[in-house]
Amino acid sequence: MKHIIKALFFSSIILSLNGCGEGEQKAGIDPKIYTDSLFAVMKADRTNYTKLIIKRLGPAGADKIKPNEHWEDLPEGAPLPAQMFRAGAEAVTELTDKFTYSLQSTWPINSQNAPKTPMEKEGLEFIAANPGENFYGEEKLGDVTYFTAVYPDVAVSDACTICHNEHKDSPRTDFKVGEVMGGVVIRVPL
């Protein structure tokens, strides 16, 4: 009888533990949905900054601000859309370690923004070759495994293409509005 009670007791613990695990998994957000949602916010903000601020108030609009790579050194300087995006990414690292993101390109103006890891290279090649599709995978960097998602960064305005096509450090000078210029890489530690 004692053995039966013991067996029942331990079985219930094991079942309850399993139950907890399943419960946690069910309660958590699928990394893909998590990164898709983050990207939606990033894309919306990035597009709005480009169209509503840079295009509207910059030299092509009211000419009230000067979008410039060295904006901090100009009285009316404003960060370029890519810099604004990176400033957000850097600010996020001060707030949370639950995810990181970066803007990269196979044709970067600053070579530090070229893909570095094998998965970044694979992801950027995939989104360039498959317009409208995203790339997802897992990679280990240092001692941590990450869910890595790569989303296409599309030229939403001629403010993007003109600047990149005319920049002396740009390795590509024939970008057109609507084309993939690079990718947003979002990582979630697993």
Binding site: E90, A91, S102, K116, L141, R187
Partner: peptide
């Protein structure tokens, strides 16, 4: 000084190999 290499330039996991 508009630091050219602030800490937040290095916190992205893609720099893990460099940080080693």
């Amino acid at each position: 000084a508009l630091d050219s290499h602030p800490k937040n330039k290095f916190t992205d996991p893609r720099n893990a190999n460099l940080l080693k």
